[in-house]
Design a protein around this nucleic acid. Structure first.
Lengths: 231, 231
DNA sequence: AGCTAATAGAGAAATGTTTCTCTATTAAAT
DNA sequence: ATTTAATAGAGAAACATTTCTCTATTAGCT
């Protein structure tokens, strides 16, 4: 009981690692499709332009283990990442905002393979309410909290205009939603231990326009992450 | 001439700083609308849940200077950030892929205030070609390189399905485009010193589903960035 | 005019992340 | 069986970012 971070092995994963895991996943899925059985960190590193040691460290977070001289078994690695990210179990999600962006997300069939199924959409626009977008029905926004509760929804997606985002977030929290994926460019204030993840569209824009304006190519520290240089 | 990084003051900005700048910008714009003339790092830090020193360091990258006991002049700060990010000059951009997501981006009127004007869309679907989405005409994809060259387009946006993304990227490079904002979940291989910025939708998803699966709230290192905890 | 409190800004320390180095393991070749 | 080469994995070093500490400046108050 001497140990510091007791409680339950505070599994705190570095954000950069979490950022890279989906890339490994996507890469491994392609490998699997191509029929590869095993893969080494060296090769992954080469193909993805990461340091092989980093690949090893990243993968070790998921609990995956490899064999010297061979590497990792592709299918095992995929399964480990899926489990680690929670992509092996599907979370039902609600989306608020059935505009262009909301419709786009509703049309993303791949989300189901990444742990998310959007099962209902919500909007205030009477024109949209009652319609069906990509197979999902659009319901009046005020029904969100009640339904979320009844259905035990844990994940909410916000694709409403910035001015409405805070209000929608509160509805979601009221409905017992535990995690919010926010596409509106506003800082949401939520009570409770609700996790908000903002999709930072303007950061991407900033990275690009900054580079164009200053005529830097891959000047912005490191090559990895969102940035991919030439090669 | 003894100096190491000669060339031109290799202005390498830390990625986390670049990530936060759009947040300051958005916050300052709101302040300005509300009529505030000056603002201190202390206050910014409180409102955005950042360390005040960090705010100061971040802002100093843009060249902004404040006055002790007062803070920064809001309008100056906004201008400095705009200049730094290149948001004061507009880049004309082409978008490839006029599907749901492409249409969504075409409808984002705010891009113009962030240095980007999408002036033409491209698609292979004969149904879409010739149509007008949010005021922008959809042209056949094969015209992209020629037009990009003729018009001196530097920025391209990719919202085509993953399978077509690489081919589209090559068309863009061929058209002399220097920076690509890629929404397709694939690692693009580009030659030349072309900058590719991937919008990492699956990272967001990973962060959320991982947290939900492990029942962590804000366990994933730090509170800032994409994550916002309760408070 | 002098004092006080708030703040910017610079530099140091602490922390977190990436890269390097070394060792151990194992499959394949000799 | 022994050697060799490729690799995982652990630990150390290097590097980057964040946080802390201190100093200087200045507006407002006494």
């Amino acid at each position: 009981m001497e140990n510091k971070n007791n409680h339950k092995e505070v599994r705190t994963i570095p954000e950069p690692t979490l950022r890279r895991l989906p890339k490994y996943y996507q890469y491994l899925k392609n490998l699997e499709r191509a029929g590869a059985k095993v893969i080494s960190c060296t090769t992954i590193g080469k193909d993805l332009s990461f340091d092989p040691t980093q690949v090893r460290k990243d993968l070790s977070h998921t609990g995956a283990a490899g064999k010297p001289k061979v590497g990792y078994i592709v299918s095992d690695l995929i399964r480990e990442i899926e489990e680690f990210l929670g992509w092996n179990k599907i979370n039902a999600a609600f989306i608020a905002g059935a505009g262009n962006l909301g419709s786009a997300l509703l049309g993303y069939s791949q989300f189901k393979e990444h742990g998310v199924a959007i099962i209902a959409a919500f909007d205030t626009d009477p024109e949209k309410v009652g319609s069906v977008i990509h197979g999902t029905r659009v319901l009046p926004l005020e029904k969100l909290p009640g339904l979320a509760h009844r259905m035990g929804i844990r994940l909410g997606i916000i694709t409403v205009p910035p001015s409405a985002a805070q209000e929608v977030a509160e509805l979601m929290v009221r409905g017992g939603i535990q995690a919010i994926w926010n596409f509106a460019p506003v800082s949401l204030k939520v009570t409770d231990p609700v996790l908000v993840r903002n999709e930072e569209l303007y950061f991407s824009l900033a990275a690009l326009s900054h580079a164009l304006a200053k005529n830097l190519n891959v000047q912005i520290k490191k090559g990895e992450d969102g940035y991919a240089s030439s090669n």
